[in-house]
Simulated assay, not measured.
Amino acid sequence: MNGYIRTTALGATAALALSLGALAAAGTAEATTLQEVKDKGTLVVGVKADYKPYGYLDSDGKIVGIEPDLAKDVADELGVELELVPVQSSNRMQFLEQGKIDLMIATMTDTPERRKAVLIVDPNYYSSGTNVLAPKKAGFKEWTDLKGAPVCGIQGAFYNRKTEEEFGAEIVAFKGTAEALTALSQGRCVAFVYDDSFLISKLGEAEWSEFEIPLETIDDAPWGLAVAPGAEDFAAFMSDLAKEWHKSGRILELESKYGVENTPFAKKMHEEHKGS
């Protein structure tokens, strides 16, 4: 049944209700086993729909991106249909625990706390850290070059404090990335500090051709795909598949497909696994 994808669209109100309702839900669903996925003939995967290029809506309203493509790989390997469900950071683990999705591939940072809630698969499939997007002409080489300079950031982001306190920048905070990028393009700040996976994606766009990510990424944190607690057979299957993604260079291929410069993590993992 390769080639078939059905997208479940949750409106903003419905998504919020699900997220809030999850907190009051009594108990959790039993983990979906690998055989159960095969028996029902459909793999339900939670992905982002607002984080280009990892998961986003195209002009037709279809969820596309690096992670939906990985989800399609899983469905193809199992010989089942694929259903994509848009998730948010606030509900993605709850969707797994409640059985609303069988698998989650949704830009989730792997942390010890999250490993207590869901079954995160090893090896990690991706990673991101903190960096800046800045004009090439600025000539930044070190984080300390930002001292005393206005740097765009996102309100509430944890790296704002570090950029200010350790490197001496003056953070100009905005509510969202669109506002921060506009300010950067207008010269109201000399750089934009943010998640490097997002910043790297901007380099493939014409309007940012004179910009670069000049510094060494810091606070690198791996991303983990996950299944529900108790689904050990499914986790083992996904572990083997993740290893194959790294071995074959699939992650590097998808980065190139979606205009992302190959990340240090993806290149490192390919080198580590290609001889295995």
Results as ranks from 00 to 15, higher is better:
248 S>M: 07
253 E>M: 08
213 I>C: 03
99 G>Q: 01
47 V>N: 08
127 S>M: 14
127 S>R: 15
51 Y>M: 12
90 S>K: 13
41 G>V: 05
6 R>P: 00
59 S>D: 15
50 D>E: 15
248 S>Y: 01
229 P>T: 08
130 T>P: 01
201 S>F: 00
197 S>I: 06
114 R>P: 10
138 A>T: 00
82 L>W: 02
137 K>D: 13
52 K>P: 09
220 D>W: 11
232 E>Y: 00
146 L>E: 02
219 D>P: 00
46 G>Y: 00
123 P>H: 10
271 E>R: 12
109 T>V: 15
179 E>W: 00
158 F>K: 01
65 G>C: 06
232 E>P: 03
26 A>R: 15
63 I>P: 03
192 F>K: 02
60 D>L: 10
98 Q>R: 12
85 V>Q: 10
209 S>F: 05
264 P>I: 07
257 K>I: 05
141 K>H: 11
66 I>R: 01
54 Y>T: 05
133 L>C: 04
235 A>F: 00
207 E>H: 04
133 L>N: 00
222 P>R: 07
198 F>L: 14
192 F>A: 03
192 F>S: 06
243 K>E: 14
5 I>H: 08
245 W>E: 05
60 D>H: 11
273 H>M: 14
182 T>G: 06
30 E>N: 14
74 V>F: 10
75 A>V: 05
44 V>A: 04
210 E>Y: 02
22 A>R: 13
110 D>L: 15
7 T>K: 11
220 D>H: 11
88 Q>K: 15
242 A>E: 09
224 G>P: 10
164 E>A: 13
8 T>E: 14
264 P>H: 08
163 T>I: 03
23 L>P: 08
134 A>P: 09
178 A>T: 11
91 N>D: 15
35 Q>C: 02
221 A>L: 14
100 K>G: 08
200 I>C: 09
80 V>R: 01
